[in-house]
């Protein structure tokens, strides 16, 4: 069999074998992680450094506008940002505009309680879900406590110690919308344009391309896009944990990104082989 025949045959292989190769290619790095270095990309760095340099006691709204269908990408970002805020003495205010985001956000705060011994209503606040989307975003600009009369656990927001100095966006240093949909754009329209609060987006890889114009226009201060950003942020938070002598690192996003990188290499390889086979078969005709 000539090289040409080999490539042509390879380009016509049954797709089930390709699935099998990718499955093996993804499983092996999950068991034996290659531990690729994580270099922070500029968009992620902007968000990280912004939070890192906030004065202690600042407030950041973390809106968990995602659901389990995009959790592998977005949930590690939410967990890492919650931990980062608490480690730097910044108070994260958790909320969600999507019903299913409530359980996921709660999981992130529960982990922060376990790893960092964070205290509810002192080190963080979790407001939970509120129906209304854009109306909620606008309402927070007037009075957060009138939009959320109680937090997720039923405590009156007027009674929550950590929320005492907070009235509206004027007291909020940053809003991050974690989402697998177009909701970060809604935050840009109603929170940034109307109230001037700083906004960032944490989104899935599929939707990342849609949000670059917002960064270019200064409507987002930065963006966490896809599993890569989750791994970069997780790695940066692990470094802070190491500095502070807290050994409870999270490596889920880093591990998954390693497997992802191998998978992408395989896809590139398949595309090259497929193209060589295609051109060789055309030349034969």
């Amino acid at each position: 069999m000539s090289v040409r025949d080999f490539f042509i045959k390879l380009s016509k292989i049954d797709r089930k074998y390709i699935y099998l190769v990718i499955l093996i290619g993804l499983i092996i790095p999950l068991i034996f992680p290659p531990r690729f270095p994580q270099k922070m990309s500029p968009q992620v760095k902007r968000v990280f450094e912004y939070i890192d340099t906030l004065p202690k006691g600042s407030y950041v709204i973390l809106s968990a506008d995602y659901d389990p269908s995009v959790a592998p990408e977005v949930h590690p970002m939410y967990k890492a940002v919650v931990k980062h805020c608490i480690l730097r003495g910044v108070i994260p205010i958790g909320m969600t505009l999507g019903v299913q985001g409530a359980g996921l956000a709660l999981d992130a705060f529960t982990e922060a309680e376990r790893v960092l011994e964070a205290r509810r209503d002192t080190d963080y606040v979790f407001l939970g879900y509120q129906a209304g989307g854009a109306v909620v975003i606008l309402g927070l600009g007037e009075d957060i406590k009138s939009v959320y009369k109680t937090d997720y656990f039923g405590t009156k927001t007027t009674d929550i110690y950590a929320l005492k100095p907070v009235k509206n966006y004027r007291d909020i240093a940053l809003v991050i919308s974690f989402s697998g949909s177009a909701l970060p754009a809604t935050w840009a329209v109603y929170a940034y344009t109307k109230y001037g609060v700083k906004v960032a987006a944490a989104v899935t890889g599929v939707s990342a391309g849609d949000f670059y114009p917002y960064i270019q226009a200064g409507q987002f201060i930065g963006m966490l896009a896809g599993m890569k950003a989750a791994a970069e942020y997780e790695d940066a938070v692990n470094r802070i944990l190491k500095e502070k002598g807290i050994g409870k690192f999270s490596t889920s996003a880093i591990r998954m990104m390693d497997a992802n990188s191998i998978g992408q290499l395989l896809i590139i390889l398949f595309i090259i082989i497929g193209n060589i086979g295609y051109f060789l078969s055309r030349r034969r005709k």
Partner: peptide, 22 residues
């Protein structure tokens, strides 16, 4: 570029489940 991001996103969903199972 968008396709590259999409590949990463689709793999992420699969990898998330595989990581859970393993």
């Amino acid at each position: 570029a968008s396709f590259g991001y999409t590949v990463m996103a689709r793999f992420s969903l699969l990898v998330g489940r595989l990581d859970f199972l393993l």
